[in-house]
Design a protein around this nucleic acid. Structure first.
Lengths: 242, 242
DNA sequence: ACCGGGCCGTAACGGTTCGTAACGACATGT
DNA sequence: ACATGTCGTTACGAACCGTTACGGCCCGGT
């Protein structure tokens, strides 16, 4: 009962394949003339960079999905975000000699490496580049703040619902289906990002499925009732915590 | 028992007075020649700007303390930070027509208003200004990430201890005492920032005082054992949660 | 002086989430 | 085939924190 309909394997394959195509520019077409960009491929689990390594470049995700993890000196670890096609990675280390976090590929991924020193000088020549970089940094701050709001004010269930809607939205912006996609991260990563435990994520996903809002099996996710999910985030349901 | 020693009122007055002096530049000396900066004063409780208002300027805090609050469409509210002397306020709205959060003065405060449009063009003329702005944005991201790590991995007690140490550190950087200062925000604001309830903050502060780590009465804070607090953050104590 | 509201502290209770454990599915390698 | 490891799910007990309630303190207003 409640299993993904037959034939889904093919669909899933198509979804994944979709994210592997379209390796054209992501808005950096003009940049190619001004920067020595190189392409870099990563296998699942491979580090794009580690905390402490010298900071030399920013990276623009072309294909795949990566997670950035903040680390503390005493071993704590917190996933601070999942980076997908079009996201700029590494901005948190700008202005420092070394990187401040780990970035790990969750998928087979591909990024454009944008050396930072050339980029800085290009900012003086290429009109609008500086503004775009600034805008990207500001946008990053807004994303972080938005999640601080969610993590600070929502309970576990609403956090998960909010996370799923955000994933769906990002997929939609990339031209993929918002109601059927593959989770590129495991339960533990989701839990870390949402400041929960992976068992709690499992429990919540099960509950959301029982209510008919989603259909999830392993990494395959179907959003059955986006409106209901949104209601869940906004607390129309019993919505206990906080 | 456990009250602040007699004569404290005078000390407190001195601490507050200290934060009201020294209204000289905060590293923006050169900027004065290139930007039409104006000074703006705020009374306690007054908004510097509100969510939705047109975004026109950044603000550099000179005196006092402000809080920035992220707001959700359904009424939730989250304090995302406390801004003190030397902090640049408003960066989260860069590149947007309107502000995305509320900023409220907790103290009698004073800020320099730096109109953003002139600042953008100044970036093209003033060498290093662009790099400084970029650095500030990156630093803001690092602060947010650092708190995501704390909120995601620490329990209530360790969050509060971490918060107090952060306050102490910022006071020290400004040349004030790190072991004796005035809390410019009330318990509810602290609680919101730490994703807790104000009762929990109260309880934790009481417990920390029982252990002899701090001495707190209303808004006056003394750090008696900074090393012990650091141990508390790092989980040397029973440190239950998570 | 009296009152009222905001802020703060304490306590008891209840609920959400945690932490542990056990189990199953699946992939990989021997 | 079997062992091994990772991942996901579920159950159960316990800890933590939110909730609620009450009372004290301070300050401004009447």
């Amino acid at each position: 009962m409640n299993t993904i309909p037959a034939g889904t394997a093919h669909t899933a394959a198509k979804v994944v394949a979709g994210s592997l195509e379209r390796r054209d520019d992501i808005g950096l077409g003009e940049l190619r003339d001004h920067l020595p960009m190189t392409r870099r491929r990563l296998r699942p689990g491979q580090h794009l960079y580690r905390s402490g390594q010298p900071f030399t470049a920013l990276f623009l995700v072309n294909v795949g999905c990566l997670k950035s993890c903040e680390l503390s000196d005493d071993g704590r670890e917190q996933v601070t975000g999942f980076r997908m096609r079009g996201d700029l990675v590494g901005v948190e280390s700008i202005g420092l000699p070394g990187c401040t976090c780990d970035v790990v590929a969750l998928d087979a991924s591909e990024v454009w490496e944008l050396p930072y020193a050339p980029m800085l000088s290009a900012c003086l020549r290429v009109p609008g580049l500086q503004a775009r970089l600034t805008w990207t940094l500001a946008e990053e701050i807004r994303r972080d703040r938005s999640w601080m709001l969610a993590l600070g004010t929502l309970g576990a269930e609403r956090r998960v619902a909010s996370f799923l809607l955000d994933l769906a939205d990002r997929h939609a912006r990339l031209g993929f289906s918002a109601s059927h996609f593959i989770l590129r991260m495991n339960r533990t990563d989701i839990a870390s990002f949402l400041a929960l435990k992976h068992e709690t994520v499992s429990r919540v996903l099960s509950r959301l499925q029982e209510r008919g809002l989603i259909l999830v099996e392993r990494r395959e996710m179907r959003i059955l009732d986006a409106h209901g999910l949104r209601d869940c985030v906004n607390g129309d349901e019993p919505a206990t915590m906080h």
